[in-house]
């Protein structure tokens, strides 16, 4: 059993860990602080106490129409996630509950499609999108994001579904549940937590995707990744505004991320580390 740990040791590790953690977190913290500064304040050297103005947030909306890319990000991440779930839930379900000799091979093959470097297919995808008029369209990009995350979604769901013990399904069958009864009363309630965490991770991944979102959009469908990247062109001092836009862009996903720590490990290691 756990031993009593000396207070001195605890104090030491507490101080050490907090210092390291704050250094790692500092860029994010400083961005949030800077977002509450005025543009002149932002370049006046190191200062962690802002004047507390909301001007940058207002400017980002009025001058740059922040709301549009934000809604594009919401649409793309949520839309692509639902689309991916729609296709992967049945697939993961069938592989987890009616496995065949080839199930393992299919899973490995699905995973291997994730290994393809995006840049290798940049040209064909670009040309296909151009020819079908999908460049800078939200539907086209949503489909792209769905495809690149599909293997991860299927894998995550598969590992969750596989943990539902077979005896429970047999018990339901003995208890007189029909196939739909089994799915509705027993499987679905047990699978919901797994589906929810898969959804969460996929939204995070789609929100932060920064290759296709940059290359396949210009203005209409541009999500926050492209919006923020547009700040890189040097056209004057805009750091408070950049900070405000960045804070808004990362805040929702940061909070979701905090809630999905465990699922993140599982999802991104394809179940290899739990």
């Amino acid at each position: 059993m756990a031993r009593a740990v000396s207070t001195r040791r605890t104090v030491f590790f507490t101080v050490a860990a907090w210092i390291v953690a704050l250094i790692i977190f500092f860029p994010i913290l400083y961005t949030i602080i800077t977002s509450f500064k005025s543009e002149t304040e932002a370049i006046q050297g190191f200062n962690i106490i802002p004047s507390g103005t909301f001007q940058s947030y207002i400017d980002v909306q009025t001058q740059k129409d922040y709301f549009k890319p934000f809604m594009n990000s919401v649409f793309l991440s949520v839309g692509s996630t639902f689309l991916a779930l729609l296709i992967s839930v049945p697939a993961a379900w069938s592989m987890a509950f009616s496995p065949t000799k080839r199930t393992k091979d299919i899973l490995m093959w699905m995973l291997s499609t994730k290994m393809m470097p995006a840049v290798a297919v940049l040209m064909p995808i670009y040309l296909i999108f151009r020819d079908f008029g999908l460049l800078d369209s939200r539907i086209g990009l949503m489909f792209m994001l769905m495809m690149i995350n599909l293997p991860i979604v299927i894998w995550m769901l598969y590992t969750y579904f596989r943990e539902i013990p077979g005896e429970i399904l047999e018990a339901a069958r003995m208890d007189g549940a029909s196939m739909w009864g089994e799915i509705w009363y027993v499987l679905t309630p047990m699978a919901v937590p797994g589906i929810a965490s898969t959804m969460l991770l996929n939204i995070i991944l789609a929100w932060n995707e920064a290759f296709w979102t940059l290359r396949l959009t210009t203005t209409d469908a541009a999500p926050l990744t492209a919006f923020i990247a547009s700040f890189s062109s040097p056209q004057g001092l805009f750091w408070a505004k950049l900070s405000a836009a960045s804070t808004l862009a990362i805040a929702p996903i940061l909070i979701m991320g905090w809630f999905s720590q465990k699922q993140l490990v599982r999802g991104l290691t394809f179940g290899a580390v739990k």
Binding site: P165, E167, I168, E170, A171, A172, R173, M174, D175, G176, A177, Y185, V186, P189, M190
Partner: peptide
């Protein structure tokens, strides 16, 4: 089908519905 046989079973893992 199992349910039609009029039998009841107690499983090794109990197989209770956790939710």
């Amino acid at each position: 089908a199992p349910a039609k046989r009029g039998l009841a079973m107690v499983f090794q893992s109990y197989a209770l519905y956790p939710h």
